[in-house]
Amino acid sequence: MSGFVRARGTFAALATAGAAVTALLAAPSAVAAPQPVVGGSTTTTGAYPFVMQITDASQNQFCGGTLVSPTKVVTAAHCMAGETPRSVRVVGGRTYRNGTDGTVVRVDRIWVHPGYTRVTDGDDVAVLTLSAPMPHTPVKYVSSSDTSVYAAGTTARVLGWGTTRENGAASQQLRTATVPVVSDASCRGSYGSGFVASDMVCAGLASGGVDTCQGDSGGPLVIGGVLAGITSWGEGCARAGQPGVYSRLTTFSGLVAAQVASQPRARDT
Rank of each mutant, 00 (worst) to 15 (best):
S2A: 13
G3D: 05
R8Q: 07
A12Y: 13
A13Y: 14
L14V: 15
L14A: 14
A15Y: 10
A19Y: 03
T22P: 04
T22G: 11
L24G: 14
L25N: 15
S29P: 00
A33H: 08
Q35K: 10
P36G: 15
S41A: 13
T42I: 00
Q53N: 13
D56S: 06
C63Q: 01
G65F: 01
T71E: 03
V73W: 06
G82H: 07
V91P: 03
R106D: 15
P114I: 05
T117C: 13
V127M: 10
V127P: 00
A132H: 00
V139K: 00
K140C: 03
V149G: 09
Y150A: 04
V158W: 12
N167Q: 09
G168M: 02
S171A: 15
Q173M: 10
A177R: 05
T178A: 05
V182N: 08
D184R: 08
A197V: 12
D199F: 08
G204F: 04
G204K: 10
G208M: 09
G215M: 12
V226S: 11
L227E: 08
A228W: 09
G229P: 07
G229C: 09
I230Y: 04
G236S: 10
C237R: 10
A238M: 00
P243F: 15
P243T: 13
P243N: 14
S253E: 06
V256Y: 07
A257N: 08
V260F: 12
A261R: 05
R265E: 09
